[in-house]
Amino acid sequence: MTTTTHTRTAALALGDDALVLSHRLGEWMGHAPVLEEEVALGNIALDLLGQARILLSMAGDEDELAYLREERAFRNLQLVEQPNGDFAHTIVRQLYFSTYQHLLYGRLAATEGPFAGLAAKAVKEVAYHRDHAEQWTLRLGDGTEESHGRTQVACTALWRFTGEMFRPVDGLGLDPAELEPAWLESVRGVLKRAGLAVPEGPRTGAWSAGAGREGLHTESFGRMLAEMQHLHRSHPGASW
């Protein structure tokens, strides 16, 4: 099967999103607020890693791509690379991203493009991720004063990273901008039900975040990659 350059670009974008978010969620293991959540976050991280492996394999060798690219060559959204922060940050990051990913895969599954097969399988996984994030957002937003405060901070802090999700991706076969109204409606709805204020800050523009797809990342991403790639790079050519 020949994969066009365009498809490769899109596969990298989606694959890097999944890989990087999976890695971040993996950082939770052994640190989750309750044992049941170790298992839940682990499930989500494993689903995403599975998606990443399929997508990266469409673009080349999964390990070469994951372990041997420099920071500027990664195409993931800045949202997914944001550090875990507290549990509220992680949940809001999940809410923003999984809502987008669910809408995206739902659409891709209905196309005849190269991502239809993957999307048809992944959309079911992501539906669960979205549900998990929504359920937690409701509980944290409408739980205690402390949980409400923390979650509101997280909603606002991560808001600026959400505009980038709807920028065009070469080779994707659809314009992500079409997903934006549904995303806004859904996220606003969840935040309102949780008693959280919908952030009003900027989501797009040269001064906001929004260049992960072009290989411009945030400071913590370099450290994340250093940790992720160190062992693999220390043994060039070795098999594991």
Partner: peptide, 17 residues
């Protein structure tokens, strides 16, 4: 976070989980 291949990373996460 340092598993040297994606296959190993998936296995290890599943195991810890």
């Amino acid at each position: 976070t340092r598993a040297p291949s994606l296959r190993r990373k998936a296995i290890l996460m599943a195991k810890v989980q």
